[in-house]
Simulated scan of single mutants.
Amino acid sequence: MIAAALTFAFACYAVALLLDLWRIVRGPDSADRILALDTMVINVIALFVLYGVWRGTAVYFETAMLVAMVGFVSTVAYCRFVLRGDIIE
């Protein structure tokens, strides 16, 4: 039963990633693109966690933590660039 649930969850997050990619390409302004990139990071984190559950190892949970940290920093940096025109003052 857990295999079927994992397969369904992988499919749902794959569709979500495709929809995020569509929003990045077709986003009317940069705020939509920033939001789509942040959502894409969250979906990738979820995929790493699901893959770690499927494989039964903790390495992918640590990878998810690293992706979360990098994703947060990149979202903040991109927002600062859009708002102020530079990242480092």
Rank of each mutant, 00 (worst) to 15 (best):
D29N: 11
P28T: 07
L18M: 11
M40Y: 09
D38S: 12
I42S: 11
R33A: 06
R26A: 08
L21K: 06
M65H: 08
R23C: 04
P28H: 08
Y51H: 10
D38H: 09
V25L: 07
A46M: 08
A58C: 13
Y51T: 14
D38A: 13
G27L: 01
R55W: 03
M40F: 09
G27R: 00
G56L: 01
V25T: 03
V53Q: 07
L50W: 01
A31S: 13
Y60G: 15
M40S: 14
L17S: 07
N43F: 05
T39W: 04
P28R: 12
V53F: 05
V44I: 10
V41N: 14
A36V: 00
L37P: 00
V25K: 05
M40R: 09
R55H: 10
D32P: 02
T57N: 14
D38T: 11
A31P: 07
G27K: 02
V25I: 05
A36Q: 00
W22P: 06
I42C: 09
Y51K: 06
A31V: 09
R33E: 00
S30Y: 03
T57F: 04
L21C: 10
W54L: 14
V53Y: 04
L47E: 09
F48T: 08
G56S: 02
V49H: 01
V25E: 05
V59W: 06
W22I: 10
F48A: 09
L17V: 04
G27E: 02
G56M: 00
V41M: 11
L37S: 13
L18E: 10
I24G: 04
L50K: 00
V41K: 10
V25F: 01
A31R: 14
T57P: 10
L66Y: 13
S30R: 11
E62V: 13
N43K: 09
R55S: 11
V25M: 04
S30H: 05
T39D: 13
V59P: 12
L18N: 07
R33S: 06
T63Q: 14
R55T: 14
D29C: 03
